[in-house]
Design a protein around this nucleic acid. Structure first.
Lengths: 126, 126
DNA sequence: GGTATACTTCAAGAAAATTTGAACTAAATG
DNA sequence: CATTTAGTTCAAATTTTCTTGAAGTATACC
């Protein structure tokens, strides 16, 4: 990834996706979905949370495209949440590129005396 | 990474690290630090933010161990922020393991009719 | 058709994060 | 030694997020 490819627009989107995940309950929900499809009631039982809260947190993950939802073909009252694999792949790619250790540069700050040459007259001699 | 290795303790730490990064301003600051060491005033100039806000956001990244700080050897008033490379490496490892696409399992939910066998008496014939 | 079920939406309250402005610290400068 | 400089800390105000409880929707069951 080039420097210009890490644009502020990408940074904003990455920040919003990370914010959707940056919550212990939502991260646990995501973890459960990684282990396979779950319905609202299963998530609620696993995390000891009421169904409306599950619904709320799932909508945050859904809004960021990270989670998909489907209704049961036999009984449409049941909803099944699952990981959006394309979004996960893109997140992994963007995250890996953004936080790649080899992007770290040995720049020196342009202000402060550190980068500046210390004048010889200021250097104590003998 | 095994399922048990992704424990709730790890999830909480990952959630806290992601939360520290899940802010557009802090992510931009982190991006600037990836390009090399910056002092408070450089970050403030680049992001049009007052020094106390830079200080505040940097302390959040520092508290999570993601950013290091050092004072100038010549003029100790200047502070230099940089990426903590060990923390970055660990974050990449944990994130990559947690969100690894191949962790997704084809589980069927244990409630709802989807997984259940549809009784023959309910299947319309001929 | 009335009731139960599974979930969502809404509104209000509680908690947390963010921003602002001022006061403070420590070090360098004249 | 007073002043300037670079940054931090503090307290209050604002904004956002999270939780709670109730109401609403749509579907299935009897």
């Amino acid at each position: 990834m080039t420097e210009t490819a890490v644009s502020s627009l990408n940074i904003d989107k990455l920040a919003r996706q990370l914010k959707a995940l940056a919550n212990p309950k939502r991260l646990q929900m995501f973890h459960l979905l990684m282990a396979g499809v779950h319905c609202n009631c299963e998530l609620g039982e696993a995390l000891a949370m009421p169904p409306n809260l599950i619904s709320h947190h799932m909508s945050i993950l859904r809004d960021m495209g990270l989670v998909d939802v489907a209704r049961d073909a036999v009984d449409a009252r049941w909803v099944y949440f699952s990981i959006n694999e394309a979004a996960l792949a893109e997140l992994n790619q963007v995250f890996g590129a953004f936080f790649a250790a080899d992007r770290i540069q040995p720049r020196r700050p342009s202000c402060g005396p550190q980068g500046a040459v210390v004048p010889m007259t200021d250097i104590a001699m003998g």
